[in-house]
Structure formats: structure tokens, C-alpha cells
């Protein structure tokens, strides 16, 4: 059974349909890349999956549990959605690190606040907080940022900031890690260091959805590719097949603009 099942997601802003009947599945340990031109609805789709936007139609199922369904009002309350967000981690195009916290604090914040809800928090506060810090330091080490733990976001390069953001998204051990154009705000040199992290994550079988404009990266790293245009999935399939031998005319046109 697929880890993630997205069925019939639709979303309109006013009278403009941004997403129409989007369906796809994602298996555990699989990386899927979503490609397409600007305004094709890629980002909106990701935002719907993270409940930052509410879709108008369709359903989202993770591990057999229906997290959200347009037909079931009980899945749509704020309190219900809050916990379900934790199935997904989200990495933003502009990093969105919290500027008033250090890299380490950025990574620890969500876990610390969540720990406060544990019944044994008061008794074992010290141990719990030490555990969280150790975990956060480990994540930063994985990102090659051990020596930057005490730095504030503005003291870090864009690539370092994005790697902190990835560590932050990983802190709550989400089932699925989502990336919204993670390298679009970076220059080519810094893009490389973030893509390397993504490659490592893929090699470690992290389940990922990556919205990206890096075609070569998508071809090499993603297992499958979803090509979107005008709010619909035009073509999906194994990454190399979609990039090297696209079936649809629209996909060919799009890839041609990348000189492929």
C-alpha cells in the first residue's frame, strides 16, 4: 500500500481553478519530483498537502488514515489538522528560519513545544530537553553544520540557512518531507550544497516530494516525476522516462525550454 495517497485534489482561488483533480501516490522511501512552469499549481499542491491551504475537493491519506477529506467535515477542524501536519515536513523556498533564534534553537523549537504536552514533562524536564538538544545537534551534524549551531540565520549563507531549515523540518520525524523549490533562492554554488543534502536524503530512503526547476537533479535523484501544467497532472512516470522520453507534447515543449 502506498504511504501517501492523494485523490482528486482541486483548489480554486475565486473563479480561477489552480488545481484540478490531482491524484498520485507515493510509496515509502520514494522521492517524487514535481516539475512544471511557474503558475502550474505545484506550490499550491504542496501547500494543500501541508494544510497551509485548504483544498476544495479530494482527500489526502497517509498510511491508510484519511487525514483530510473534502467530504468529511470532522477532518477539517483546526485542532484535527494541527496534529496531522506533523506527518509532513515542509522546506520553503525562502527558508523562513526564525531570525530571533539560533540555528540550534530553530531546530529545537517545535520539539520543545511539543514535549511540553507530554504528561511526564514536568518530572523529567531536564532529561527531555537534553534529549531534544542532542537530537537537534545530530541533525545539524548530518547537514554538516555542527560548527554553526550557535549562529543566527543572518550570519549564515543561503545554502547553510536552507540546510538548517531541512534539519528543522526533519526534527519532528515527518513521514513525508516536502520541498518547495528549495534551491530557487540560491546561487548555483549554494544550490549544489543543498542538492547534495537532498541526494543524501534520497539515498537514505527518505520519502520526499520535491518541487523543483532542477531537471538534471530531478532526473538523477527522484524515482518518479510528476509534470504539472495549468493545474493538472499532464504526465507522471519513472523519472528518467519522463525526462528522456516524454509522452505528452506539452511535456516535450516544457523540457525543450530547459534545453533537454
Amino acid at each position: 500500500m502506498a504511504l501517501l495517497e492523494v485523490a482528486g485534489i482541486g483548489k480554486s482561488f475565486g473563479s480561477t481553478a489552480v488545481l484540478r483533480d490531482i491524484s498520485f501516490t507515493l510509496n515509502e522511501g520514494e522521492a517524487i519530483a514535481i516539475i512544471g512552469s511557474s503558475g502550474s499549481g505545484k506550490t499550491t499542491l504542496l501547500r494543500c498537502l501541508n494544510f497551509l491551504e485548504t483544498a476544495d475537493t479530494g482527500s489526502i491519506t497517509v498510511g491508510g488514515e484519511t487525514l483530510w477529506s473534502a467530504d468529511d467535515i470532522h477532518t477539517q477542524s483546526e485542532a484535527a489538522i494541527r496534529k496531522k501536519r506533523l506527518h509532513f515536513g515542509l522546506v520553503f523556498q525562502n527558508f523562513n528560519l526564525f531570525p530571533q533564534y539560533t540555528a540550534l534553537q530553530n531546530v529545537m523549537l517545535a520539539e520543545q513545544l511539543l514535549a511540553k504536552e507530554r504528561p511526564d514533562y514536568k518530572q523529567h524536564k531536564k532529561e527531555i530537553l537534553a534529549e531534544i538538544e542532542a537530537h537537534a545537534r545530530e541533525l545539524l551534524a548530518d547537514m554538516g553544520l555542527s560548527d554553526r549551531a550557535g549562529h543566527y540565520p543572518h550570519q549564515l549563507s543561503g545554502g547553510q540557512q536552507q540546510r538548517v531549515a531541512i534539519a528543522r523540518a526533519l526534527a519532528l520525524k515527518p513521514d513525508i518531507l516536502c520541498f518547495d523549490e528549495p534551491t530557487s533562492a540560491l546561487d548555483p554554488e549554494l544550490t549544489g550544497e543543498v542538492l547534495r543534502v537532498l541526494r543524501d536524503l534520497a539515498a537514505n530512503k527518505t520519502t520526499m516530494i520535491i518541487v523543483t526547476h532542477e531537471m538534471k537533479f530531478a532526473r538523477d535523484v527522484a524515482d518518479r516525476i510528476l509534470f504539472m501544467d495549468g493545474g493538472v497532472v499532464v504526465e507522471q512516470g519513472p523519472a528518467k522516462e519522463v525526462i528522456d522520453h516524454p509522452k505528452e507534447e506539452r511535456t516535450r515543449q516544457f523540457l525543450a525550454s530547459y534545453g533537454k
Binding site: 494541527r82 496534529k83 517545535a110 519532528l172
Partner: peptide, 9 residues
């Protein structure tokens, strides 16, 4: 959005 995506109320 970043805070909320991390599950903060």
C-alpha cells in the same frame, strides 16, 4: 506558515 507547518498552534 513555517511555524504552523511545524505543528505550532
Amino acid at each position: 506558515e513555517a511555524a504552523r507547518s511545524l505543528g505550532l498552534p
